[in-house]
Design a protein around this nucleic acid. Structure first.
Length: 385
RNA sequence: GUGGAUGUAGCUCAAUGGUGGAGUCCAAGAUUGUGAUUCUUGUUGUUGCGGGUUCAAGUCCCGUCAUCCACC
């Protein structure tokens, strides 16, 4: 038994254990022990909004090797409704997924999708983006909803804000987020030890001192994990990096750290470098559906005319079944022809790419060579990252 | 053969006698706690052809060609 396995075993019942630290950077390798199995970190979580990761099957996700995916309280609450999910014993039974699920609270979705939202002390009222019906999310109801969903990790209702708001507005959102986190914790404690783990979410918009205050207030609650929210909402990459580094430094080492809503490989490298353990993002799957693939040398836009008839694998260095079987020219044809197989194959590849990318990230941390890995990775990317 | 209808962007179609547009296609870009079929931007014209009327014609008139429909 090697050193890593030993330390993993010693982790016992703890939710999170750091197995290895890079040393030169703040990057670390860890393991999350969740209700549906262990998850090695840093980890990328595909987003399965409607109890499905768009364009791929659960069998595909298992085949690629994902053991933690996202679900959305907001979406499945609206459709099919919590009663239906309850009838199946939760999201796992409903979607036939036996590995872990993290559910988002709906705070971001109300912010980004629902019209006519109104935030009050009690909670947030909003209109459904599907049928316009009126609803109220309170912190208590959202924790209870995620308990019905059977989430392995649940997120509290928070107030997510866009860049460019005033300090006063940011402060108000932060205070509401903290108050809601306290109420969420109280409800969560009432669920008993079998419930999923509740994380805290740090807000504070793009004001460094407010981020600090939010971090302090959320950390005081001593929840199992900490998320950095309110990033990747339209700010510049520099603003993202600066705020991420500042916020991450305030977080305790022993807890899993989760940056919500990223990312691209480049963003993930920045986050890992700052000691972040978890990420989720629609980006890899969304751009896949629009015909864009991640490759070892940058993004490949399949629909470009230059790819017409190209008899080459999409990413020569990729071992995924799509790259081994199909040509760029064929994939381009599928997109130009509007065939559903195009988005399916592209999504499979991008998820495979993200999974193997994070495998390599963890390997480099284990070897204490993360900085070199990051540098080599970025220099190999000819275009955007 | 007779009667009628229609000819406008590659395609499907708009446009009171007054600077020829839209959708689609094609091309480029966007996308970060979800948006497949989305968004943004761009290229594309001897208005079938030839005359005439008019200050001005895709539009009105004549001829001609093509296509479609109906009827002998």
């Amino acid at each position: 038994m090697n050193k890593m396995e030993n330390r993993e075993r010693e982790a016992g019942g703890r939710l999170f254990t750091v197995l290895e630290e890079d040393g030169a950077t703040r990057a670390r390798l860890g393991v999350l022990r969740l209700g549906h199995g262990d998850v090695l970190t840093p980890v990328f979580m595909p987003v399965g909004t409607n109890a499905a990761v768009k364009a791929v099957s659960h069998r595909d996700l298992e085949e690629i090797g994902f053991d933690l995916i996202l679900g959305n309280t907001y979406h499945v609450y609206l459709r099919p409704g919590l009663d239906v999910i309850r009838g199946f014993g939760g999201l796992h039974g409903f979607s036939s997924w036996n590995r872990n699920i993290l559910t988002d609270s709906g705070g971001f979705q109300v912010f980004s999708l629902a019209p006519f939202r109104k935030i009050r002390e009690e909670g947030v009222s909003f209109r459904s983006h599907i049928d316009g019906s009126s609803h109220l999310f309170t912190p208590e109801a959202v924790v209870e909803a995620q308990h019905v969903l059977g989430s392995d990790i649940m997120m509290p209702l928070d107030v997510c804000t866009p860049p460019g708001i005033t300090r006063g507005e940011a402060l108000s959102a932060l205070e509401t987020t903290t108050a809601w986190a306290r109420r969420s914790k109280k409800t969560w404690l009432g669920l008993g030890p079998g419930a999923g783990k509740l994380f805290g979410i740090i807000q504070g918009n793009f004001f460094e001192d407010l981020r600090g205050r939010s971090a302090q207030e959320i950390l005081e609650l001593d929840l199992p994990g900490i998320a950095i929210g309110g990033l990747s909402v339209g700010e510049s990459p520099d603003a993202f990096r600066g705020l991420l580094a500042g916020t991450a430094r305030m977080l305790p080492k022993e807890k899993p750290r989760y940056v919500m809503g990223i990312g691209t490989p480049g963003y993930i490298l920045d986050a890992v470098e700052n000691g972040i353990d978890m990420f989720d993002c629609v980006f890899p799957t969304r751009i896949a559906r629009n015909g864009c693939l991640f490759t070892g040398t940058g993004r490949l836009v399949l629909k470009r005319a230059e790819n017409h008839g190209a008899d080459l694998p999409p990413d020569p260095g990729c071992g995924c079944p799509v790259c081994k079987r199909y040509s760029i020219g064929y994939l381009r044809h599928l997109f130009k022809a509007g065939e559903i197989l195009g988005p399916m194959l592209a999504t499979y590849h991008n998820l495979y790419y993200m999974k193997s990318f994070l495998d390599k990230v963890r390997e480099s941390i284990k070897n204490h060579s993360f900085a070199g890995f990051k540098k080599d990775f970025l220099s190999a990317q000819s275009g955007e990252r």
